[in-house]
Amino acid sequence: MSLTSSTLERYVDRISPVHALDARVKVLMTLGYILTLAFLPNGEWAALAGLAGLLWWGVWQARIGLGLVLRRAFVALPFALVAVSLVFARPGAPLFDLTIGPWQLTASDAGLIAFISVVIKSWLSVQAALMLIATTQVVDVFLALRAFRLPTVLVAVMAFAYRYLFVLIDEASRMLRARECRSAAHHGRRGGGSIGWRAAVVGQMVGTLFLRSYERSERIYVAMLSRGYRGEVRTLDTQPLDSRDRGTLIGVLATLALIIYAALVW
């Protein structure tokens, strides 16, 4: 029972046409998809429906279950509430009045359209990002970023961070659990100490975790040196894209371009 394995990792090992695509292709498709959403004017419902259809077709192809993707995509919901204000802030034809106490708010049609568009765009963007990570090994994403000429140091740091992320999250979880086990109170008496004390305890836990992480990195470094590390990060050369990769990439990007074109021209 690992405490921490990301729930998406389960899906990465499946076999599907989407999983089989090169990571570079999937990164480009994801970025293209999210950019298309971003450039789409508000209220283009047909285009949004087309984009949703495209994505869900991909989810179906990838055999990861639409339910999971839709559910996980609600992480962006808190920000949707910030966007509620758009309903009342945008100038436009008044739709209805909302009376709260002595105040009156007027919702506009343009505002409502902006709000709904923003929420749908955000929801679809999260789904696209989920798709990428549910069908691609993280390590392959790093290699793709390397292939896109991200600085080697940055990618190497990311890879190290990913390698030790779950180790340290486990350590943090065990500390939290040990703290929880000693967080007692008397019957009927209010326990828990002051807020300042609680913050100090967390600070001490952070300090402990820092020292252990720091010392771990020193051990890692020694282990690397003893295996011939000389300060440069080497990676295997990436394979060229095959025809299926290229075909899919061109097909998807062309579809996205078509959707944008249709939305802007019609």
């Binding site: 008397h186 828990g192 836990m205």
Partner: peptide, 25 residues
């Protein structure tokens, strides 16, 4: 717990042994 490092997160031995009683008020 098995690993005392998980249990001991305070700067001094005193602070750590005092954590439980302090939390209990």
């Amino acid at each position: 717990f098995q690993d005392p490092d998980d249990q001991l997160f305070s700067p001094t031995v005193f602070d750590d042994v005092a954590f439980g009683p302090l939390h209990m008020g």
